[in-house]
């Protein structure tokens, strides 16, 4: 299966993502440098990994969203290609206008790295089709800017269109996100952005392998 992991200067969970994807799909994904203007032929899904692209300068994800390769990523996303952004990848998807809302500084203004409980709110997207709605699973977060905010109208629209994919379970919200939002999809359901790190719970040596199920969804998405 042909996957592309986009690498920006400052990406630092790119190697984690590459290993997790290679383990799940059996094929090493293509690493695509941010300065490229096209994706390799036959790409079946695009992954934006975590990190601090461009040092998080200006706003997290703002500069990366305007990197040359993102024009192509946006075009293909609008055509229905599965795209997943994790952590900084989620920030980039928002800055690129592929997902609504904004990710602000954590409510307590500090970086946070710990394991939280997530709850699946929608399994409409291919990424989460392997989970029943309401399933809870523990997943690490590691971010300074994961506090999801949007207008009341937008929140209602996210709810109405079943676009809230993942929430932090009650009492587990690490960053102050509105409605405990941990991950959302676009309305079409082919683009998922999430702050927690499924790639760090995918490999045999990691505490669980629940995260692999998200990437298994990609296999189906391509089928």
């Amino acid at each position: 299966m042909a996957l592309a992991v986009i690498q920006f200067p400052g990406s630092n969970r790119d190697s984690d993502m590459v290993e997790a994807l290679a383990h799940v799909t059996g094929t090493k994904p293509h690493l695509v440098w941010h300065a490229e203007t096209s994706l390799p032929a036959g790409i079946e899904a695009v992954v934006l990994p975590g990190g601090f692209s461009y040092g998080d300068y200006l706003r997290c994800g703002a500069i990366a969203a305007r990197a040359p390769v993102m024009t192509e990523v946006a075009k293909r996303a609008q055509q229905g290609l599965p795209v997943i952004g994790v952590c900084n990848g989620f920030q980039i998807l928002i800055e690129a206008g592929l997902l609504p809302g904004a990710l602000m500084r954590n409510a307590n203004l500090r970086f946070v790295c710990k394991t939280v409980d997530l709850e699946v709110q929608s399994n409409r997207s291919r990424f989460l089709e392997g989970f029943d709605v309401g399933t809870r699973w523990a997943c690490p977060v590691a971010h300074g800017d994961g506090n999801y905010v949007c207008s009341a109208d937008m929140l209602a629209r996210l709810q109405d269109t079943d676009s809230i994919a993942l929430t932090y379970a009650s009492g587990s919200n690490p960053n102050g996100s509105v409605a405990n939002i941990a991950g959302i999809t676009n309305e079409a359901g082919n683009v998922l952005g999430m702050m927690p790190h499924p790639e760090n719970i995918s490999l045999p040596h990691q505490p669980t392998q629940v995260g692999a199920r998200i990437f298994e969804g990609l296999l189906h998405a391509a089928a």
Partner: peptide, 26 residues
């Protein structure tokens, strides 16, 4: 230690709070 990323690179086997941190060598 919750302000430190203890997991990046995906090979951490033991995080702070125990006797020793452990990292897997790829």
């Amino acid at each position: 230690y919750e302000q430190y990323d203890t997991l990046v690179r995906g090979h951490t086997l033991a995080t702070p709070g125990g006797d020793a941190g452990i990292v897997r060598v790829e």
